[in-house]
Design a protein around this nucleic acid. Structure first.
Lengths: 346, 346
DNA sequence: TGGAATTGCTAAATCGATTTAGTAGAATTG
DNA sequence: CAATTCTACTAAATCGATTTAGCAATTCCA
């Protein structure tokens, strides 16, 4: 593995200084009154040697890495995978790279990732945090380190964020279920449940129930642990479906939960929507081929990633003078299919 | 955003040299005969100032970044998303970070990513390449730059790779279809089709047909362009289903294609498996809830990511003395469900 | 013709670490 | 007691870029 050419190599080959070479290659040749002829020679030699600047050196000197860090809660979840892609697309359009990590909903892994990404001098961070009102987020905040939360925010802190309108989406769900004749609507939520993506969905559920004249019953809300979804569902779904609760509808707050719920309902030999209606917060391609197709809330993931990058870069590049709104809620939409009994659905 | 403490700050505060501080913090204090007492003072001060080494500086000096680059063909595809997670998991266990990018099956984007990741001094690359017998791969190879291809390899070059046994998986598919009574088996492949992940699936299909005494018919193989799957499927699936070809089974070579195919079959008002059997190469959670559940080949993605990391780190850390096998085929398995008509399936 | 301005370029400092080569002073040895 | 060895530590070079300060030679102007 031979050594890559450096500025010094070009300079030596041409008998000029590193300064000159650096200026020319950074397009500052004219500003600094470098002879056209010399500039051409520099470019030619750079091409000849296939010179590529060493980003480590550059970042070290400039104190900027043109890299942002992205910490998602679970990269193997299609929701976050799409988010990664959206963030990467948006960032690369602006000339930034993305260092990513997956916290797997684990607070200490997330802390570790924050630390590691900062060690690598990322210019800013986008995090779908699993931490609550955490000191680590607060610390970044106080240090004025560029940070944008995505998907979930920390209500206690004044931290920039970009998220779906989880509250609004949930009211759409409940309204639709009620329209389809639902009377007893259960909710399956996931822990860690202090996350706003979840609390807002629960809040929307409660408020919409009230609006529709249905009394909220805490017993109809069940929380499934993130790291043991299958078992949790297998245990708790029957509790909701059987007397005394006998729910006629299930509002499932995320896609992994939904997959397990479908499996469970199938195993119980029940039919959707005849025996129980099902809606999921999060749309997946395959929902439309399920038996029956599953009604879901679609989140504007691509827009979310894009928007988070915009807000973050605004902070990175303009510091205190950042102008973009940095608390963003994006609209969701209800995709009506047959799992709630709608006749109109395809 | 206040400046972070450097080695020099600790040294100055303690009235010792940077050298000493560096040695102590790298655990080489004893080797270099640094006084226990002094070592304690250094550690204490480092903690007090919350010192974190600057990785840029360290990498610049050491010529190693402890970061690997991962280029996947499409991060929004769950197959590659899981691969990302697997690679990140394995890498972080070994103390490496992952810089990732998505080439979106676009050769020039892939070249760009290779360039950019190298600019960032990654220690090695894992690529699910979209390039064929490409000069860029060859160049890396010749330079002896640590590189492992994943999912797809370049047969013309002697490049390390880790992939599923695509050939073997395809024979499982065809054998199963024939067992279920298939006589005319169509194949839906995807372009770019020169990739080994695809060519091997086609080769397996052909050989297995022959083994089962069925004549291969090129007209039953249709290639769908990656960037326009929906249209491609909508146009070509009817051609296979209608006379004169009238296939009774479809072997779909990847998950995105499968989703579109299901959609198309649904729109045509046909039933699976009565009107046409369907198998997909790649398993997705939701296949088991489809109507009917879809038979698929499951690939050992996690093992694949893990293995690629092992092989790559072996090369990075041991250079020419790397000992691990660096051409790896991993076994796949057929998950039998009802889309091929099996009675035994759940 | 002498001072100022312009043109074209360079030396050296800097970022923050690691690493090589070496030194002062105490302890040990012959 | 002089020579040697240890102990505990340091100065300076280095990685590869950017940036500041400034210099030499030419041209311009009065």
């Amino acid at each position: 593995m031979k050594k890559k050419p450096s500025l010094a190599d070009i300079a030596k080959a041409l008998g000029v200084s590193k300064t000159l070479v650096s200026m020319v290659l950074n397009g500052k040749g004219n500003d600094n009154g470098i002879n056209e002829e010399t500039q051409k020679r520099v470019w030619a030699k750079a091409k000849e040697l296939d010179y590529k600047p060493n980003m480590m050196a550059r970042s070290l000197r400039m104190g900027r890495s043109h890299t942002i860090g992205l910490i998602v809660a679970d990269i193997s979840n299609s929701f976050y995978a799409r988010m990664c892609r959206a963030v990467e697309d948006a960032a690369s359009k602006k000339g930034y790279h993305v260092l990513f990590g997956s916290s797997d909903e684990n607070a200490s892994k997330e802390k570790g990732l924050i630390q590691m990404l900062r060690d690598r001098q990322v210019d800013g961070l986008i995090i779908s945090t699993t931490l609550g009102n955490n000191e680590d987020i607060k610390a970044l905040q106080e240090e004025n380190f560029p940070l944008v939360l995505i998907d979930r925010f920390v209500p206690q802190e004044d931290t920039p964020f970009v998220t779906s309108d989880n509250y609004g989406g949930s009211t759409l769900v409940v309204d639709h279920l009620v329209q389809q004749g639902a009377k007893r609507i259960g909710q399956l939520t996931i822990s860690p449940s202090h996350l706003t993506s979840i609390t807002e969905r629960t809040r929307g559920y409660k408020d919409a129930l009230a609006k529709n004249g249905i009394a909220f019953d805490q017993a109809l809300v069940r929380e499934i642990p993130y790291d043991n979804i299958r078992e949790g569902i297998r245990h708790k779904v029957p509790l909701l479906l059987n007397p005394p609760h006998s729910v006629d509808s299930l509002f499932v707050v995320n896609n992994n939960l939904a997959v397990a719920t479908l499996e469970c309902i199938q195993d119980l030999g029940l039919r959707i929507p005849e025996d129980v209606r099902v809606v999921c917060f999060d749309d997946i391609d395959l929902f439309k081929f399920c038996n029956p197709p599953i009604t879901a809330i679609a989140q504007p993931i691509e827009r979310m990633g894009e928007c988070a990058v915009e807000v973050l870069l605004d902070k990175i590049e303009n510091g205190g003078d950042a102008t973009l709104a940095d608390k963003v809620f994006l609209e969701t939409s209800l995709i009506v299919r047959r799992s709630c009994g709608s006749k109109a659905a395809k």
